[in-house]
């Protein structure tokens, strides 16, 4: 899977960008226009960010640690003021329209934070009480449903202090699901979860999205979001280097055939004769862009030509490879 090398044209092949300047508000849950945050020290955390998150999408907000994801989320939620530019959440300008927009937004920002001496249930009641639009008559049902949904029903009465890291993360997700939400903003929702928990969060996000809720999920782990996102945006040192539907992002990078063989020269010339482009030869391996050819036809031709085929595969670039092309560095590296 990882054998495909990106061509020099990776940047040019980046997916077409949605133009947030012209996108109608009604079609987007989140819009950012020239969003910029400069900290007092002069460090620019987010630089001229244009973002459009379509309604109903699962939007993966990706980038290495320190690339400005959390700062962006804090501005979207009205926790910090942008230095310049602005953003809209659910059609309301932030932070001015905060009181209208945020009751319909469930948020998990920079890890869980709760009152250690309260039980999980009491903690959720506390946050529910802070929402002026929530109905106190349904709080028990809603808290119970949220705890149930993240699998914490059995630990509802336990003090938060005694929760494990994974349970804390689940409680934070439960808090985001306390009411009917039109948008979920989840900042690194799988931090601290074991692989099983990670898989369950992914399935939960899919369920929530199936109801029509837009999910904006940030992560520094690509593989995690690749499977559940419909759209992605990629941050690099405070700048958005790509955004768009995930299929389009992948489409810029054509699938390739990979032939493992000791007869590399023979295989390479055959692939060339068959009309495949960008034929590359490496140690006991030949790759080329698949194009319109059928893999089984190529394989048959190779064998008929007497090439000893030890392995044959069609590789589609994973998002990770696309990203390496976009960010030009290993993904989990601090920017």
């Amino acid at each position: 899977m990882t054998m495909v090398t990106m061509g020099e044209g990776a940047h040019e092949a980046a997916p077409p960008r949605v133009a947030p300047e012209t996108a109608p508000s009604s079609d987007c849950s989140i819009i950012a226009r020239g969003l910029t945050k400069r900290f007092r020290g002069g460090q620019v955390a987010v630089d001229d960010l244009h973002l459009a998150v379509p309604r109903g999408s699962v939007f993966g907000f990706l980038g290495p640690n320190g690339s400005g994801k959390t700062t962006t989320i804090r501005m979207l939620l009205g926790l910090t003021q942008p230095t310049s530019g602005g953003c809209e959440v659910l059609g309301r300008p932030m932070p001015a329209g905060l009181a209208d927009a945020l009751p319909r937004v469930g948020a998990l920002v920079e890890g869980p934070a709760f009152y250690p001496y309260l039980s999980g249930e009491a903690n959720l009641r506390r946050y529910d009480a802070a929402d002026p639009t929530s109905d106190p008559r349904t709080v028990t049902a809603r808290v119970g449903a949220a705890l149930d949904r993240v699998g914490l029903a059995a630990a509802a009465g336990k003090r938060y202090r005694a929760y494990s890291l994974g349970m804390r993360q689940r409680l934070a997700i439960a808090a985001a699901l306390l009411g009917p939400r039109e948008l979920l903003v989840l900042d690194e929702p799988t931090n601290g979860l074991d692989p099983q928990g990670t898989r369950e969060v992914r399935s939960l996000i899919k369920d929530v999205a199936a109801d029509g809720t837009t999910v904006f999920v940030s992560s520094h782990l690509l593989g995690e979001v690749e499977q559940m996102c419909t759209h992605v945006g990629v941050m690099r040192t405070g700048r958005l280097v790509a955004q768009g539907p995930i299929a389009e992002l992948r489409a810029g990078h054509a699938p390739r055939v990979r032939v493992e063989t000791p007869h590399t020269a023979q295989a390479a010339s055959l692939l060339g004769r068959l009309g495949l482009t960008d034929v590359r030869t490496a140690m006991e391996e030949v790759t080329a862009e698949l194009g319109d050819h059928t893999p089984e036809g190529i394989c048959a031709d190779l064998v008929a030509d007497g090439v000893a085929v030890r392995g044959f595969a069609v590789v589609r670039p994973s998002l990770e490879e696309v990203f390496v092309g976009l960010t030009g560095e290993g993904f989990d590296v601090n920017a």
Partner: peptide, 30 residues
Amino acid sequence: GFHGPSTGSGTGTRPALAAGEQLGSAAGER
């Protein structure tokens, strides 16, 4: 919920999905 009754990795997500669908429709009604 998260802790589905099944422990197998293959089926682990299925009950969660079923529950999610029920919850989801309820959320829609709300």
